[in-house]
């Protein structure tokens, strides 16, 4: 457990986090200011957290904020770190991490696609990744209404008693 404490202390000293906690065994959650995320990532990488497991986003709609989460892992110490930073929901902009972790490319594209966060410095971040053709709000935002979208795009079957007697599908044209 000593190495864990050392790591916590070192990180505390170096990153000056807003908040820090250990949500589970050998896991550290660090909340930093959005403008220090880039520095924090490069610091953590040279500390041995060489694996960027994921970059994702949480929509805190009531506080009008997005929370970006970077999860890193150190293979030498076996510690996970969640690096979190909250950014403004109306103008979601973050500095890219692709210069530190090239693999962040696809996570950033995903976050851009599903939340609309823009990553400065990553030219490809705006390219579509999963949603092959998309023409609406980013779908994982809380103000996006999937029911309405689904109803407008994918017509549903009218539910009634006659449904029970149907066997084939194509009865209504």
């Amino acid at each position: 457990m000593n190495s864990m404490n050392n790591t916590i202390n070192e990180i505390k000293a170096a990153l000056k986090p807003l908040k820090m906690e250990t949500p589970a065994f050998r896991q550290i959650a660090v909340v930093v200011k959005p403008d220090t995320v880039h520095n924090a990532l490069s610091y953590l990488k040279q500390k041995g957290f060489t694996q960027l497991s994921i970059v994702t986003c949480v929509d805190w709609i009531k506080e009008s904020e997005f929370e970006l989460v970077y999860i890193l892992f150190s293979w030498t110490e076996g510690i996970h770190i969640q690096l979190r930073a909250r950014i403004d929901r109306d103008k979601p902009v973050m500095v890219t991490a692709t210069d530190i972790f090239p693999g962040a490319q696809y996570y950033e594209r995903e976050v851009h696609e599903f939340f609309g966060v823009e990553f400065t410095g990553n030219e490809d971040a705006a390219k579509p990744l999963f949603l092959e053709i998309w023409d609406d709000l980013p779908p994982l935002r809380k103000d996006f209404d999937p029911q309405a979208y689904s109803d407008s795009k994918f017509p549903m079957r009218e539910r009634g008693n006659e449904f029970v007697s149907e066997i084939g599908g194509h009865d209504d044209e």
Binding site: F144, P146, S150
Partner: peptide, 14 residues
Amino acid sequence: NGGIYYDSYATIGR
């Protein structure tokens, strides 16, 4: 009818 994904933005209904 879409099953449990009836309101999904990515899953078709019928």
